[in-house]
Structure formats: C-alpha cells, structure tokens
Amino acid sequence: MYEILEIKEIAKETYMAKVKAPLIAKKFKPGHFVIVRVHEKGERIPLTIVKADKREGNITLIFKVVGKTTLMLSRMSCGDSLADIVGPLGNPSEIDKFGNVICIGGGVGIAPIYPIVKALKNAGNYVITIIGARSSDYLFLEKELSEISDELYIATDDGSKGFKGFVTDVLKSILEKRGDQINRVIVIGPTIMMKIAAEITRPLKIKTIASLNPIMVDGTGMCGACRVKVAGEIKFACVHGPEFDAHEVDFDELINRLNMYKELEYQALEKYLGEKSEK
C-alpha cells in the first residue's frame, strides 16, 4: 500500500524516506504533515513532509530516531510498506510576500523549514536561513538550502561547522544589525529553541511563527492530546496549527506535555531492543 521507494541515512540518526502516497502528494503544501503508523501494533506519529512529487505520486519525509517507532522506521528497506499513512494534515504555512524573512531550522526542524524557505523564496521574499544542530554530523539539506536562500548561516553547539553556538545566537546577532529590516521570523525546532527565538523577537515586535510539535494520536482534531495554550485559549496543534504566533504560545506548558510519556517511551524502546538482540 504505502510502499517505501527510497530510504537512507542523511545525517547522524537522521533518515530520509520517500514513500508512495499519490493523494497526499497531490495536496501537499509547505507546512503540512502526515500521521504514520509503521506496523500493525504501532503508534501513530506525526512527521513533516519535506517535499512531494505530484507526478510520481510520492512524498519525502525526514525523521530523527528518537524512540521505538522512528527506530523501526529507520530499519525499513526499499520495497517495505508502512502500515498506514494519512494526510496531509494541519494548515499550510502562510506564504506571502512579506519582504525580508528569517527562517530558522534547528535539529530535525531543518526538514520542515526547507519547503517553507522554497515557497517564501518563490513568493519573492529575501530569505535568510539559519540552521543548526549539535555538531556537523547532524546537519543535512545544507546544499539545497544554500541554493534557495539569499543568505545561509550554520550554527553548531560544538563549533564543528559554522558558528559555535545556537541558531538563536545567530538570530540575535542578525537582528542587532538589521532587526528593523526583518519583517517575519519562522522558527521550527526543539521547543526550547522556539521559545528562546520568540523571546528574542518579542521586544522588536517582529511577527514570529513557530511550528509546534506536540504529541498527537489521531491528528484530525479528535483526541486533544496536542492541545496547547495560545493567547490563553486552548488550541489543537493538529487542526488549528501546527503554526502559531510564537509570541502567544505557552511554551513551558508544551515542553512539560512533551515529556509526559518519556519513561514509557523508553520502556517500549528497551523492550524492542531486547527482542531484537535475542533474535
């Protein structure tokens, strides 16, 4: 059904999978995501779509191995099939001619920022892209992003490539020099990074959009697992988002909820690894 056409490791612990999904490919817009179930007893996890080939009827997903489901997915091969894939979900990114836009992708957040950069560039914006990761081996899509961005900055925590420090440090230094020329900031990555980015742009009153990554089950608005507080109201990231005004998001609450199943997720991973090593 949902055949994997190509799968490869593109950076440390990070994989790219091209999957046959003609209906989703046809409808894809930047910002959309899918819900994937890897096997018959599997959980439903949201993954962002990086690109879609409408003619060939496939979509490309990039994911980082963080638990059992993503580990199993990374171990699948060409010709294998996913149990389920459904989408495209969420609202597409707002793409318009804003002027000068900064797009930030941190860690695996580099993946979803790519189609947004592309669409913003096509819409006539001047796009400054900042990507970052723990170290250079975790980076990917550098070449593709440098081709479509007007400026590309790289940050690594250990300084193994580009600026030594966080993407938010780069953001800060750009804004110090030409903050008054920036019309919009889009940030996707670890929640704490998005929170810091929002705090940097808040005093400058630069419209900042964050794409949130809460825990989801159905992804269609039915369960409310992905609820976040935005401007004091309860919103479901799957149907109202996943992009929200970063200045209105309660990031601390989101960080707390993201850790809810940590122990159980670890237990599932340990069990899986144990079963694998027995065989």
């Binding site: 007893k41 959980e43 489901t69 089950v217 369960c223």
Partner: peptide, 24 residues
Amino acid sequence: YSANEFLIRINLMRAYKFPNYDTP
C-alpha cells in the same frame, strides 16, 4: 485527558496492551 483521547488510546490503539502495542 479528554475522554476521546483516553478512549482512543485504549480502544483504537490498544494502549491497555502496552508495551505489546506501542501506544502508551
């Protein structure tokens, strides 16, 4: 939890059989 989430996890995702099923 919303009742929907609680029941979806248990009924649809078989969370009552965790960790034999993956949804906690």
